[in-house]
């Protein structure tokens, strides 16, 4: 028996420790299969790679098959496929890195300002750091408000505003919500699902611009191929 205070969970090794007494004769026939399933990590990550390859193939196909590549539909499909492929590649890449087969930039927090002032309960971040973050957020807000009074096309303004807002959101999540100082596994659990779900909502946008073009009664409607 293993003492309880030792960590028992070893990812990927659980399958190999199945009790085989009593049914050993029957299981011997499946030995190659069992060897494969013993390394669950490898199997599941292989599946992930398969999915990723499939999505890359879909992306290439949608880019190649669309007549005009620079159109909302085609760009959207390609981007979604590539993003899903990227999501599926995260876990295999992590496994490769874990087994020392892939060199990656370290995720660990660099030494610096963030670690100067550590309180008794490991509260990373000094008042100066948070004041700097606050200052950055205020400056970005002022830039946004000033931008609203420049005469720029609406779509360019929207892009810049959303870009600045994403920077602000990242600052708040990383420093105020302390996610930068949390375990990497928490970050990798929370952020990708949110990003994927929000990106899937964008699936409606090609439809909204098309419904605008379909309405031929409006003043100055442009006759597009879809708006017959």
């Amino acid at each position: 028996m293993r003492p309880f205070d030792q960590p028992v969970v070893e990812a990927g090794r659980v399958g190999g420790e199945l009790p085989s007494s009593g049914s050993g004769g029957r299981l011997r026939a499946f030995a190659p299969l069992r060897r494969l399933t013993a390394d669950t990590d490898l199997l599941l990550n292989g599946l992930c790679v398969l999915f990723a390859v499939g999505f890359i193939a879909l992306a290439v196909r949608s880019a190649a098959m669309s007549g005009a590549f620079i159109s909302t539909d085609s760009l959207f499909m390609t981007a979604v496929c590539l993003m899903l492929a990227g999501v599926f590649m995260v876990s295999p890449a992590l496994m490769l890195w874990e087994r020392g087969l892939l060199k990656m930039p370290s995720f660990a927090i660099p030494e610096g300002e963030a670690l100067i002032d550590e309180g008794p309960i490991h509260f990373e971040g000094s008042m100066r750091l948070f004041l700097n973050v606050l200052g950055g957020l205020l400056v970005l807000t002022v830039i946004e408000v000033a931008l609203a009074y420049f005469q720029v096309p609406l779509y360019i303004m929207l892009t810049i505003l959303i870009g600045l807002s994403l920077i602000k959101a990242a600052l708040i999540v990383a420093y105020f919500m302390h996610l930068r100082f949390e375990r990497m596994s928490l970050v990798l659990t929370l952020i990708p699902i949110l990003v994927v779900c929000i990106c899937l909502l964008f699936i409606f946008f090609p439809d909204s611009t098309r419904s605008l073009n379909l309405r031929t009664t409006r003043a100055g409607a442009v006759a597009t191929p879809e708006a017959r």
Partner: peptide
Amino acid sequence: AVDQSTLAADWGGGTFPYHV
């Protein structure tokens, strides 16, 4: 936070997989 090989340990599960 200072351990350079943190990711492997972080992704390994254990009793507190998220450490919160």
